[in-house]
Write a protein that binds this DNA or RNA. Structure first.
Length: 748
RNA sequence: GCCGAAGUGGCGAAAUGGCAGACGCGGAGCACUCAAAAUGCUUUGCUCGAAAGGGCGUGUGGGUUCGACUCCCACCUUCGGCACCA
């Protein structure tokens, strides 16, 4: 099954439609037709009966079904938090859609905003998403695996409770270095955390004012500024004190933006001697530095470089003398026993924010009732179709345009019947693409998202192809969905894509094509100029499929020449269909059959460029045979031409079909199938043996395939080139790999 | 800072540890032609040499090996990802 569909909801389509003052619906469906026509022109052999469009209600009603399944399991939830906000798209963004502090779509600088939003609980699957990457090792590009590992970012450490003076509850911090607990000389709390505000509220009026000013500063800064390296540490003293549970020392509590509110507990124990960031902070504000791990490095206070190496614990009470690993395990045990801490792990991964304040997406199937709260839309009311765009103001304004569709928004509560309102946000389009591969199994079903039976038969996907841009977006989300659906009993496998190929891009003059750069190469123009076959062949021949191709470096006209050469060769064949190949010229037959062996291996190994090269070699041999003593009537010539046509059908279907017809066959070269290579024709009579002296090639000779070591030795003895290279030196050793190689090692 | 990948002719690229550069682009030459185009053939890593024949050559430096583009270590460069994640 090789299906095709359109992931058609989302911002780009909506923005393009708004710009042209069109209904996103009309714009999208028109473009699907255009796109489809150009793909057909390019002769893509998809299964055109299994088309999906994610913006069809018949598709997205199952997004809504899935949402409700997740909701039932507690995997879809709403919370208020600081979220990524794109001021240009006027919508929130998932963490995965913020690239280097900018919006993935429009490159605007992303800011933070406090909003109540829908999330999918990816973090609940963090361990499995990470551990199951093992299953993909070797079949997915290692780059994607490492990007996912990086993104999920699991770390192991401990949570430690610090008592706070004047506060009943202790504050818990997360650390990966509990061994350095005795070296904690202050605590830092994230400036934008609730805890910071609370601690300051119990402090002096002056500190409260300072804090407010600092917080305003922090909130103004955006991600780009935050990401700037070598940024000076900022912060302020909260005026409060904590007690180091290891040694009872009274340590100040500071507030800074270098601690993140949404990672760990939003508060850290600072060990400046052994953490660079803490050291930078301590040096800026003149806080204490206490070395607790003797690593043999110079004093961090003087060098400004924290000690992060291995060593032996010092100044640490009962931990003294232990190694880092021993100390981590011992102190964790002690804290657990005393009920003041425990082993813990943390993830970089955050929950997936899926609500969008835009029109062109799947409506979230929840109704908000003043009395009943969030009420799921009953199954029999699905799909909740998008209201018509007519009369709605689609321009980005920070709240969903669906809010303006009053007839649509105002509905009775399914639970109590009182007037209630639909949720007006739409889902992130990555929800659509997280399960579409399942939908191909039954693209038109009105009774189920996908067929369990068909899934058993077809899935998981054997070979997935996609850009590396999806490494931590689509590919992570699709893996998450698959695992959830497995847990819900809808699927019996845990990984959706068995093998993954990241195809490269077509560049022009060294960079990705873009309108603004003006380095656009239009497929349509190339097809007009060279034809689909030549363009396809050029793509395949240019290099490995995972590499980028610079269109400036390739030669579609060269491909055209090769195709013409194939066509002429087919025309020159001068024998009848069905002629007995076994009577043909053996030399040419050997070429044809070793092609059959090599070509299949190349194609199956995704080395299409090498496959094309082999095809060229075959056609070159065919040309020589026709023009030379073999002649166009030899059965081997027909055999080679037919094999070439079948091989070519993978890359240049039109020319291959033409050749097939010229060769007197009924249409259907693509279905002909490559014949098996005849083993008897793969056997070589002679082979080129190489003779080396001290590992350097000195001579080659044609020898029989069953040449013995003695034969090779004799040949080397008779070779003047070999003898000249030995130059009378004493022979130390002779390595012979009959029949291919002899290496004579001389005493130096 | 951390993680990862890649460095081979003028260019795109090939090469189970065993003839480096297959195949193609570009270049040069020859044939066909009145001529050109098209086509076919030859040639084309660098370098010394008239030639025969040498030397050098897969980012750099080491190592393993009879033998390294390939395996190991260090470094350089480029690209990609993450990044104040405690």
């Amino acid at each position: 099954m090789h299906p095709i569909g359109w992931d058609a909801f989302g911002l780009p389509a909506e923005n393009a439609a708004i710009k042209r003052n069109l209904d996103p619906r009309a714009w999208t469906y028109d473009n699907i037709e255009l796109h489809k026509a150009s793909m057909r022109r390019y002769a893509c052999s998809f299964d055109w009966d299994r088309i999906i469009r994610t913006c069809d209600p018949i598709y997205y009603r199952w997004n809504q079904w899935l949402f409700l399944e997740f909701y039932k399991k507690g995997l879809a939830y709403r919370k208020n938090s600081m979220v990524n906000w794109c001021p240009s798209c006027q919508t929130v963004l998932a963490n995965e859609q913020v690239v280097g502090g900018a919006c993935e779509r429009c490159d605007s600088v992303v800011t933070k905003k406090a909003l109540t939003q829908w999330f999918f609980k990816v973090t609940e699957y963090a361990d499995r998403l990470l551990d199951d990457l093992e299953l993909l090792e070797g079949n997915w590009p290692s780059k994607v695996l490492s990007m996912q590992r990086n993104w999920i970012g699991r770390s192991y450490g401990a949570e430690v409770d610090f008592a706070i003076e004047g506060r009943t509850e202790p504050v818990t911090v997360y650390t990966t270095r509990p061994d350095t607990l005795f070296g904690a000389t202050f605590m830092v709390v994230a400036a934008d955390s609730d805890l910071a505000a609370e601690l300051v509220s119990g402090s002096t009026a002056e500190i409260r004012m300072q804090f407010q000013a600092y917080l305003d500063e922090v909130k103004k800064s955006n991600d780009i500024e935050r990401l700037a390296t070598d940024r000076d540490k900022t912060g302020l003293d909260s005026g409060r004190f904590a007690i180091n549970p290891a040694n009872g020392e009274r340590i100040p509590v500071w507030i800074s933006d270098y601690v993140l509110a949404d990672y760990g507990t939003g508060a850290i124990m600072a060990v400046p001697a052994h953490d660079q960031r803490d050291l930078d902070f301590a040096r800026t504000f003149g806080l204490g530095v206490k070395v607790v791990l003797e690593t043999g490095e110079a004093d961090p206070l003087e060098t400004g470089v924290a000690l992060t190496g291995e060593g032996v614990l010092i100044n640490s009470g009962e931990l003294n003398g232990l190694s880092k690993a021993e100390a981590i395990s011992k102190i964790t045990g002690i804290l657990e026993k005393e009920g003041r801490g425990k082993a813990a792990k943390n993830f970089r991964l955050r929950d997936w924010l899926i609500s969008r304040q835009r029109y062109w997406g799947t409506p979230i199937p929840i109704i908000h009732c003043d009395d009943c709260g969030e009420v799921p839309v009953p199954q029999d009311q699905l799909p909740i179709e998008l209201p018509s765009a007519e009369g709605l103001d689609l321009a980005p304004k920070g709240t969903s345009p669906l809010g303006g569709a009053e007839d649509w928004v105002n509905v009775p509560c399914p639970s109590c019947g009182k007037p209630a309102k639909r949720d007006t946000d739409t889902m992130d389009t990555f929800v659509d693409s997280s399960w579409y591969f399942l939908r191909y199994l039954s693209p038109n079903s009105e009774t189920e998202a996908f067929s369990k039976e068909e899934a058993k038969k077809w899935l998981p996907v054997d070979q997935y192809v996609g850009g590396v841009t999806h490494a931590i977006l689509h590919l992570l989300y699709a893996r998450f969905f698959t695992k959830v659906l497995q847990d819900l009993g809808h699927l019996d496998f845990s990984e959706p894509f068995t093998r993954l190929l990241n195809q490269g891009m077509v560049l022009m003059n060294g960079s990705a094509m873009s309108k603004s750069r003006g380095n656009l190469v239009k497929l349509g123009d190339q097809l007009d100029e060279h034809g689909a076959d030549a363009v396809r062949l050029t793509m395949a021949f240019a290099g490995p499929p995972e590499d980028d191709i610079d269109w400036a470096d390739v030669s579609p006209s060269g491909s055209g020449k090769f195709l013409a050469r194939c066509w002429r060769a087919a025309n020159d064949v001068n024998s009848e269909v069905g002629v007995d190949f076994s009577k043909g010229n053996v030399e040419l037959r050997k070429v044809t059959h070793s092609f059959l062996r090599d070509f299949s291996a190349n194609i199956e190994g995704f080395k299409f460029n090498v496959g094309v090269a082999k095809l060229m070699e075959l056609v070159n041999a065919l040309r020589k045979a026709i023009d030379g003593s073999v002649g166009p009537a030899d059965p081997a010539v027909r055999e080679a031409a037919e094999v070439a046509a079948i091989g070519l059908s993978l890359f240049a279907p039109f020319m291959a079909e033409e050749m097939w017809s010229i060769l007197g066959h009924k249409p259907g070269v693509a279905l002909a199938g490559l014949p098996e290579a005849d083993p008897s024709l793969l056997v070589q009579d002679t082979i080129t043996a190489v003779a080396q002296v001290d590992g350097k090639l000195r001579d080659t000779f044609e020898v029989s395939v069953d040449a013995t070591e003695a034969d090779l030795q004799a040949a080397a003895d008779n070779s003047s080139a070999v003898q000249r290279a030995i130059d009378g030196r004493e022979i130390a050793k002779v390595i012979i790999r009959a029949p291919k190689l002899i290496n004579i090692v001389t005493k130096q």
